[in-house]
């Protein structure tokens, strides 16, 4: 952990994620608290950023075509986007650990079939699968979580499979087996906890990916449905008003990019901090 803090990328990305999720969590305290509130639509629509409307409310990021405060919607959209992303990653990590753990621990047909399944799903364009699944039921946040979870577990499964296989040959596992510990207990208590380190890196990268894909699905109208704000459907609604109110689409996009960059950098920093192979390498190469 200390190594992560000393890495500037790590510290910055944790700070960005903390600020964004803090603002999302404290929604009513940092915004008007009513993301769908509309007043006099004609008088308050398309207000520029930093404008104050006739009733005296200040709009830091302006208003959209219904006179809704963009900053408030951004904050409440962050709740949806971050929660959907985090739950989707949790689900995919769960599936990935189960599949990868089983494939790594039980050789023979179990391993072969699970690895084949992983490679198969990995070869599919994820968005095509997402579109298919999202089109099958009525679009909702729950559906997006399930769909993203079901299409995002493969890299975790591969990582866990590799770790479990190499761990299974280690002396402490042999020791546990020799002591008469059941195979399942060996896997759950002795191997999996040690195999989870690379999963953390993968989860950080996966979070950025999941948030982007949720936004994409919502943008196409197949994800979180308006009036519930999510960054994706905010960008979609700003699409029609690009000419006279570009801030409506720009603001959620900037937030999205910030969070995804933070996730990627966090993943990189975690990788360097956790991986003993790169840890001792000099950062600068000889000229």
């Amino acid at each position: 952990m200390r190594r992560l803090w000393r890495d500037r990328r790590g510290a910055c990305s944790v700070a960005v994620l903390a600020i964004v999720s803090g603002a999302a969590g404290a929604g009513p305290l940092v915004s008007t608290g009513r993301p769908a509130a509309q007043h006099d639509i004609v008088a308050t629509r398309f207000l520029r950023p930093l404008a104050t409307d006739d009733s005296g409310s200040f709009h830091a990021l302006g208003t959209d075509r219904f006179g809704r405060d963009v900053w408030t919607r951004l904050v409440y959209g962050a709740r949806v986007s971050l929660a959907v992303g985090a739950l989707a990653v949790l689900l995919s990590v769960l599936i990935g650990v189960l599949v990868g753990g089983a494939a790594g621990f039980w050789p023979g047909p179990v391993r072969t079939s699970l690895l084949a399944l992983t490679d198969f799903v990995l070869a599919l364009p994820r968005v095509v699968l997402l579109l298919l699944l999202a089109a099958m039921a009525r679009p909702s946040a729950t559906l997006v979580i399930v769909v993203l979870g079901l299409t995002g577990w493969m890299s975790v499964a591969r990582l866990v499979h590799g770790e479990v296989r190499s761990l299974a040959a280690r002396p402490f596992v042999e020791g546990a087996v020799a002591l008469g510990v059941s195979r399942r207990r060996v896997l759950v208590r002795h191997i999996l906890p040690n195999a989870l380190t690379p999963v953390i890196v993968s989860a950080a990268l996966g979070l950025g990916n999941a948030i982007t894909l949720e936004a994409g699905l919502s943008f196409l109208g197949l994800g979180v449905q308006p009036p519930t704000p999510s960054w994706g459907n905010m960008i979609a609604s700003g699409r029609d008003t690009l000419v006279n109110a570009p801030w409506v689409a720009a603001a959620p996009g900037v937030a999205l990019v910030l969070v995804v960059v933070a996730c990627t950098l966090l993943g990189d920093a975690l990788q360097d901090a956790l991986n003993p192979a790169t840890r001792y390498l000099p950062h600068r190469l000889p000229p």
Partner: peptide, 16 residues
């Protein structure tokens, strides 16, 4: 940052 840009949003910004 480039890698993190969502295609649909970058597209809209370029259109703008």
């Amino acid at each position: 940052t480039l890698f993190a840009l969502p295609g649909f949003w970058l597209g809209l910004m370029l259109v703008m």
